[in-house]
């Protein structure tokens, strides 16, 4: 079959449609860079979707839990090998995504006789200051994009329906999220999460400005009280571990 290019293209197209179809119910994951650190937020489900990867790296994900696990393990392995053979400061999201994760995902995607990986993720890298932060979006086919510098004010979102992230990125003018103290950043993250969920399900035309600014109303729109969140804490940068799970009270959620 692979000897016939048009059939290979058809197989790849079918594979993409199958994966997108499988990922569609995936709940959104949001990452936002602020002064206290990088906050990751999603809806809590029976399996965790936010993970510590390395001293200053965290992963937010959606997809099949077993596939998330494979990707998570691959990134952790690569980060620790790199940090051990060079130094922890040489471990960067850019190198992990560009030279490890993306080629591996692309290779897996193009192996049309193997089961596809159902995965979409955000890799967040904490810097010394918010301007040094970087947030990467990585997809099952190995495609990726990055946010850094002033772009971080826009926040990063992934969702089951691929169009949601595209809509968020394509907005003109781009929405600038309030990112001051942790509670402010958490509220912005929750609003973006609600926007993404509504946009991907029942209210596909919703504008961000129409999303409530009250936590109770946001949770009502979300349809659940349960949230999963993690923080790459900038105040812990001098220590080997910056990843921590803050309390709901700390976030005002």
């Amino acid at each position: 079959m692979t000897e016939e290019p048009y059939r290979w293209l058809e197989a790849i197209q079918n594979r993409r449609e199958y994966i997108e179809d499988q990922l569609t119910p995936g709940l959104p994951v949001v990452a936002i860079s602020a002064d206290p650190g990088i906050l990751l937020l999603t809806v809590k489900t029976s399996t965790p979707k936010l993970f510590e990867i390395y001293d200053h790296l965290a992963l937010g994900s959606l997809g099949h839990p077993a596939d998330i696990e494979k990707v998570r393990q691959t990134v952790i392995d690569a980060a620790h090998i790199d940090g051990f053979t060079r130094s922890p400061s040489d471990v960067s999201a850019r190198r992990l995504v560009s030279y490890n994760l993306a080629p591996a995902l692309k290779a897996a995607f193009e192996q049309i006789f193997a089961a596809p990986l159902l995965f979409r993720g955000i890799l967040a890298e904490l810097g010394t200051t918010p301007a040094d932060d970087a947030i990467w979006r990585v997809d099952y086919d190995g495609s990726f994009s990055a946010q850094s510098g002033t772009e971080l004010a826009h926040g990063m979102v992934i969702s089951g329906p691929r169009q949601v992230a595209r809509d968020w990125a394509a907005q003109t003018p781009k929405v600038t999220l309030e990112r001051g103290p942790l509670k402010t950043a958490a509220l912005s993250a929750l609003r973006l999460l609600v926007w993404a969920k509504l946009r991907g399900t029942k209210d596909q035309g919703i504008e961000f400005s129409a999303v409530p600014t009250d936590v109770a109303a946001l949770k009502e729109k979300l349809g659940t009280e349960a949230l999963e969140f993690a923080l790459l804490d900038r105040s812990l940068l001098s220590l080997p571990i910056t990843y921590r799970v803050p309390s709901a009270e700390e976030l005002g959620l």
């Binding site: 494979k70 393990q73 691959t74």
Partner: peptide
């Protein structure tokens, strides 16, 4: 590392889910 590797000792083609053993990873 640029693939989702095979778990040592596991059946061929299975993916690594990790044993958490860093010495093994180094080897």
């Amino acid at each position: 590392m640029n693939s989702f590797g095979t778990r040592p000792g596991g059946p061929e083609g299975t993916h690594a889910t990790g044993t958490g053993d860093f010495s093994d990873l180094l080897r």
